[in-house]
Write a protein that binds this DNA or RNA. Sequence first.
DNA 1: CTAAATGATACTAATATAGTATCATTTAGT
DNA 2: ACTAAATGATACTATATTAGTATCATTTAG
Lengths: 133, 133
Amino acid sequence: MKLITRDTDYAMRALIFLAQQKNRVISVSELVRELKTPRPFSRKILQQLNKAKILRSFKGNHGGFILAKKPKEIFLVDLIRVFQGPLELNECIFKKKICPNRNCCVLRNRISRIENKVLAELGAITVGSLLKE
Amino acid sequence: MKLITRDTDYAMRALIFLAQQKNRVISVSELVRELKTPRPFSRKILQQLNKAKILRSFKGNHGGFILAKKPKEIFLVDLIRVFQGPLELNECIFKKKICPNRNCCVLRNRISRIENKVLAELGAITVGSLLKE
DNA sequence: CTAAATGATACTAATATAGTATCATTTAGT
DNA sequence: ACTAAATGATACTATATTAGTATCATTTAG
């Protein structure tokens, strides 16, 4: 089981790189040269970050991307939500149907507690916090 | 993202049911009648639990399964490991290769911390502990 | 006008998840 | 000895998710 998928990971790397360039507009070409991530995939990821308003984009010649927020305002959980959907560790198989075994719901409660702890930990991780270390 | 997959979930339901039957040998037929889970899939799961020495099996007519351990000795993490492999939230994409960005490793450290917290929480969840509530 | 960039969208490949199907073997009961 | 009811082992199939690629349209600096 992975906590973050590859697109979330690449996104974080890209954002860290962009943060280090201050407010310079960076093209995909420049980014993949630095990060060594696959070009079309990286491009798709940046476009998604733009749609999510985490990046701003500039079209045309000399175009590219810059951060739309301060590094400390960009949370890892936000990236997870963009690329992996809502963080729900706990989806029950017998949604809405009557659960045939009351004990299983105890299991759901336990997993919900774990989910909350994970969310609390993730809440501390931002582009800014990774940049500093 | 899910913490447990369907086979882990069914396995836990099955083990809870078996624990409630004390030391009576339970066949797959009887189990699926109770849990309403798909028959061949449930069967495969019980066979895997047998291989993992969490259940004992009896072949032939009137055969079936019983717990091989006490309920409080069967941990959810064990089931996760049987059906989902080792719990590693943190696999790095750039395994062994030189990481092109030192900052990403900071991310790994943070995720490792989360992994440890999850493991600590999971360590408290056994068949026995779910049975009591 | 053109080259270099992103926007939008559709497609493909590989892997993981959620199962099913089947034949071989074992065993209790007659 | 025979049979029905069970598991053991193994191979197969379907669906969803992950990890990408490809392409055409549009924008813009020079």
